[in-house]
């Protein structure tokens, strides 16, 4: 039984700082139902350090498929689809609002260096404001900076929509297959699950 339930709105936390201090809430304590993991805290930091677009919420799960996915609704739908096809997501992410190349790069590195993750699935709904070419640049940058070949690490790249012609050219240069909009979200998730084994 609960006596009181309070809903702390993350968006308005900065206004309530004195009250939160008085109650003993640390700055990064978001009072989720469990303590945030180091992976989640690092994801939140990456998001906070660059106002261009978002990659969060970031959550850690115990699976083996690294998810570099978007956007708000696409990530929910994709996570459901991966699970439906028997896949075990290693994380949750939500690329949206057209993140910078640098933000996509840092997210890629965060997910790919998570213990137990060998490959990532880069997937999204058909994008509008987020740009497929900028996501492709960031993902490839992140992978090459870790010393890997993009083609070895990307299970699938399904980000159709805005600037998809440029994204396809970027991926072609690095030997990664580009899935166009005729590959459904469910089919993309199925292929990723199948490839990870």
């Amino acid at each position: 039984m609960l006596d009181v339930e309070a809903d702390l709105e993350i968006e308005a936390r900065h206004r309530q700082r004195p009250m939160l201090d008085e109650l003993g809430f640390a700055k990064d304590d978001l009072r989720q139902v469990r303590e945030p993991t180091e992976f989640e805290l690092e994801g939140a930091r990456i998001d906070a350090e660059d106002p261009r677009g978002i990659i969060s919420p970031i959550a850690e799960f115990d699976g083996n498929i690294g998810l570099v996915i978007g956007a708000g609704g696409g990530s929910l739908t994709l996570t459901d689809a991966v699970r439906k096809h028997g896949g075990r997501p290693a994380n949750y992410a939500a690329i949206g609002g057209n993140p910078s190349v640098d933000k996509a790069r840092r997210l890629t590195k965060l997910v790919l260096t998570k213990p137990g993750v060998d490959k990532i699935a880069v997937m999204s709904n058909v994008v509008s404001n987020t740009r497929a070419d900028l996501v492709a640049r960031g993902v490839i940058k992140g992978i090459t900076e870790l010393g890997f070949e993009p083609a070895d690490k990307i299970l699938i790249f399904r980000v159709p929509g805005a600037w998809e012609a440029d994204a396809a050219k970027i991926l072609e240069k690095y030997g990664v297959e580009y899935c166009d909009r005729t590959v459904s979200i469910s089919e993309a998730a199925r292929r990723a699950v199948e490839k990870v084994g």
Binding site: S100, V101, D102, R131, L134, R137, K141, D166
Partner: peptide, 11 residues
């Protein structure tokens, strides 16, 4: 040219 920002170019 600020080299570190070049790949952020939105064309």
């Amino acid at each position: 040219v600020v080299e570190e920002n070049v790949d952020e170019c939105t064309l």
